[in-house]
């Protein structure tokens, strides 16, 4: 069923490649998604490590 409020028409490609992006673009998209995931994980890890460092500093000062 088509949602008329969408700006774009529904994809017309095959189920395995609905947008007809081709193998090169699909690989680039997968790599970009992977990099975003890695960057977000790194950000979480940095915030966690920083929290530990600050807590440890406070313990030393107490």
């Amino acid at each position: 069923m088509t949602d008329p409020s969408l700006d774009l028409p529904p994809p017309k490609g095959s189920p395995s490649d609905p947008f007809g992006e081709g193998p090169v673009a699909a690989k680039a998209r997968r790599n970009r998604s992977l990099m975003i995931a890695v960057a977000l994980l790194a950000f979480v890890a940095l915030v966690f490590i920083n929290s530990i460092v600050k807590l440890a500093g406070n313990v030393h000062h107490a």
């Binding site: 008329p4 700006d7 774009l8 028409p9 994809p11 017309k12 947008f19 007809g20 992006e21 081709g22 090169v24 673009a25 699909a26 680039a28 998209r29 790599n31 970009r32 990099m35």
Partner: peptide, 16 residues
């Protein structure tokens, strides 16, 4: 008025 002839979504080939 929805444009059914709009171009398909452009997938960027840009990599890391």
């Amino acid at each position: 008025a929805t444009d059914t002839t709009a171009k398909p979504m452009q997938i960027s080939p840009a990599g890391f």
